[in-house]
Design a protein around this nucleic acid. Structure first.
Lengths: 199, 199
DNA sequence: ATTATATTGATAGTGACTATCATTAGTCAG
DNA sequence: CTGACTAATGATAGTCACTATCAATATAAT
């Protein structure tokens, strides 16, 4: 108690965090209950007891309520922290394991449901793809650092693109029906990339 | 003249084709002159001398005016037509060369400008990505056929995803500044994939 | 307590897109 | 050629995401 465990950053900041969380919670609940498109921003605002104006102050778009995604930075940090002697693909494999290994069953379910929502709604799926492709450049830079090359070299870019492409292809709703399935597929894809795309 | 070169499909159909072409032409011109976002559907409709209602009868969204893309099917057909003994990557390389080799300088410029527009406008870029990812499944099926495997095998999906991912990574505005640059990069990426992603 | 500042809600707008319906124009028998 | 059938059009009214603005309110700082 003597130490500031959480710096308790003033009433104003705490209120903002609460408001943001309330909006997101009610939004996700309503999306689950009525579907994404059938839920209007007005409804979300009303449920969270704020005005529509306030909604847009916290989330620039309706999509952002779902896509505010803290995973990319965590995954990147984990990737950077892997021992330098690992190959990029081995580093990816370990990063994925370590990041998702810490999730509770509940968090896992929540992530899975969110993923289903994103894949099901074209609007959300498209935004997710866009941010993923943008993240590919960042990934290329980290790979470059790891193998001692330049990030703008065609080989490095192609490698990063191929890895991301293969990971996206692993997220296929027809054959993947659970988080466990998905991890198996990601692992298999990484094996396949490591083997040099043998056909 | 004795043969029907174009079946001349009735006045109604000819008018529709004309209207569609007029809308698209004026839309692309206005996008070029004023920018995509600054151009409203109302302006396009007015320029093409139709009502806004009619605009949406021809194009479901404003985006579709730009993204109505005839290239994917042509590229797929060309890929399917490549000799069976070629490896998938060799077949891709040849298909790309053959499809774009037939373009005139003017068509080339037009395609380049359209590509720039798509990459510059988030809305368009996202839709393009979505259709590209969707096309990956189709591509996986064709690859499967070529190598005598099933399209839902992880290896086949991962291969298709990796190829598409690497191709997308080749379309990088920082390092690619012309259609010629782009083809070089695509070729280099295919080499790299063929070599088994050596780092 | 008082001043300065951050946050809010209300209001009014824009623009993409949908639904509906009467009018018009192309088609096809007879 | 004419009239009935059908497809295409334009007008109207509406929904919803999102923006801009501004007065009212809540927090922070002095």
């Amino acid at each position: 108690m003597s130490q500031d465990e959480r710096p308790a950053p003033g009433l104003r900041e705490r209120k903002k965090a609460k408001t943001r969380a309330a909006i997101q919670r009610h939004a996700l609940r309503l999306f689950h209950e009525q579907g994404y498109e059938a839920t209007t921003v007005e409804q979300i605002a009303e449920a969270a007891e704020v005005s529509p104006s306030t909604f847009f102050r916290y989330f620039a778009t309706k999509e952002d309520v779902v896509l505010y995604d803290a995973f990319d930075p965590i995954l990147f940090a984990q990737f950077a922290a892997q021992p330098a002697e690992l190959s990029p693909i081995q580093a990816i494999r370990r990063s994925v394991r370590e990041v998702f290994g810490t999730l509770t069953a509940e968090e896992m379910t929540e992530q899975w449901e969110r993923a289903m929502l994103v894949l099901a709604v074209p609007e959300l799926r498209m935004r997710m793809l866009d941010t993923t492709v943008a993240a590919t450049q960042q990934f290329a830079q980290m790979v470059a650092k790891r193998v001692g090359r330049q990030a703008n070299e065609p080989a490095v870019r192609a490698f990063a693109g191929a890895v991301v492409g293969a990971m996206l292809a692993a997220a296929d709703l027809d054959t993947v029906q659970s988080m466990g399935d998905y991890f198996e597929r990601v692992d298999a894809s990484l094996d396949y990339l490591e083997a040099g795309l043998p056909l």
